[in-house]
């Protein structure tokens, strides 16, 4: 039964990878990365149950923390770069 969970997560991962590669805006990519992180946390948990050693959930816990920190760092960077504190980007189409 956990196998079906793993397969579902795999399908979701592949779809998100596609969205991550296609874009088209930067925020789509950030969104896909963040969602991918959540999927990773779930995957590590499910894999623990599949191999009948659910003691590895510490890593899932750590990932949940790290992923959040990473996303917030990325977005803080976007936001303060675009608030006029820095020179305007040379390629305006980069924001698209």
């Amino acid at each position: 039964m956990f196998l079906i969970g793993v397969i579902a997560l795999f399908i979701a991962m592949i779809l998100m990878l596609y969205r991550l590669y296609v874009g088209p805006t930067l925020y789509d990519r950030v969104l896909a990365t963040n969602s991918f992180g959540t999927t990773t946390v779930l995957f590590i948990g499910v894999i623990g149950f599949l191999t009948e050693r659910p003691d590895f959930l510490d890593i899932a816990l750590l990932y949940a923390l790290i992923n959040f920190v990473g996303t917030i760092a990325i977005l803080k960077f976007f936001r303060y770069r675009a608030m006029g504190d820095y020179p305007q980007p040379e390629h305006p189409e980069d924001m698209q």
Partner: peptide
């Protein structure tokens, strides 16, 4: 390059999953 940073984050997530399935839990940490 932003896309590359995002993708490399995903790359590291994927490799960590691989480490977990290969029982290298400390490396995944």
């Amino acid at each position: 390059l932003f896309g590359v940073v995002m993708l490399s984050g995903v790359f590291s997530l994927l490799s960590a999953m691989l480490f977990v399935t290969l029982d290298a839990v400390d490396v995944a940490f």
